[in-house]
């Protein structure tokens, strides 16, 4: 009887300790990345390669999803605004929801599942096939040569992707609202411009996307580096990357919104 009570509690304790320990290791890993980023400055081409694989290769999914999200916002927003007779505010609705929230968050979620999982799988497989160890035996630091360029590449790509997502979304909203439904072109843009503030809205959206970029790439790199060097280990790590970074994005989004917009 006491064993039935104690063992779940012990399991819980074990889980908590283990996840705290992992967070500590991940933080140390993050610090290590920053400390060993010298090679990225000296050899920018290493980073450019990673901007290609994280950024350019994520372009299509970002552009297409951005368009669709914007178009849906246009349709739904028009429906609601029409009830209050203020269809002209459609531009404001579309732009603010994209620039403040949907742009950074949805782009980061897509980035996590497209680029983050690829990073984890790649690094995990490099470890499983002894490539990381081979690099170490060749006196090359894998953190500096493999991990740091991917970190900076992701960090550069993420805000650009989020900006493209928002821009495409606004374009999609414009297509549905103005071109298809016939909201007045002038008031669509002018109301938007009057309501969207560069410092309050756009800049904070960019800050969000940079923070998400740091979180997703760090999680993806850590999971890849930490994965057991087996097929099962790598596949689990890839799943964990997507789950953990999605949760991290949403949690961070709440914290950032609270801090920046409400000034908590």
């Amino acid at each position: 009887m006491p064993k039935r009570v104690i063992s779940p509690i012990r399991m819980l304790g074990h889980r908590v300790i283990e996840s705290l320990w992992r967070m500590g290791v991940a933080a140390r890993f993050f610090a290590l990345i920053l400390m060993r980023s010298g090679a990225c400055v000296r050899r920018p081409h290493l980073v450019i390669r990673e901007v290609f694989s994280t950024g350019v290769l994520s372009l299509i999914i970002i552009i297409v999803s951005g368009m669709f999200v914007g178009m849906v916002l246009g349709l739904q927003g028009y429906d609601t605004l029409q009830t209050y007779g203020s269809e002209e505010a459609l531009g404001v609705l579309v732009a603010l929801s994209l620039v403040r929230e949907l742009g950074p968050v949805v782009a980061a979620l897509l980035f996590a599942s497209r680029a983050g999982s690829a990073i984890t799988a790649e690094i995990g497989l490099m470890r499983a096939t002894e490539q990381i160890e081979a690099m170490q035996m060749m006196a090359v630091d894998p953190i500096a040569r493999v991990v740091a360029p991917r970190f900076w590449g992701g960090l550069i790509s993420m805000p650009l992707l989020a900006a493209m997502f928002s821009a495409m979304g606004i374009f999609g909203g414009y297509l549905v609202g103005v071109v298809l439904i016939g909201v007045d072109d002038g008031s669509f843009w002018s109301q938007m411009q009057a309501a969207v503030d560069f410092g309050d809205d756009i800049l904070q959206g960019v800050i969000k996307s940079v923070v998400f970029g740091v979180a997703v790439t760090t999680i993806a790199l850590f999971e890849g580096f930490d994965a057991p060097p087996t097929a099962e280990g790598v596949s689990r790590a890839t799943t964990r990357t997507v789950v953990t970074s999605s949760l991290a994005i949403l949690a961070l989004d709440f914290i950032l919104t609270a801090v920046m917009f409400r000034g908590l």
């Binding site: 790649e122 497989l125 490099m126 096939t129 002894e130 490539q131 160890e133 081979a134 690099m135 170490q136 035996m137 060749m138 006196a139």
Partner: peptide, 16 residues
């Protein structure tokens, strides 16, 4: 290590 070489069991070539 720069003066050592190591050949891994399956080569461990950089696949990219």
């Amino acid at each position: 290590r720069k003066r050592m070489g190591m050949l891994f069991q399956f080569g461990a070539l950089f696949t990219d």
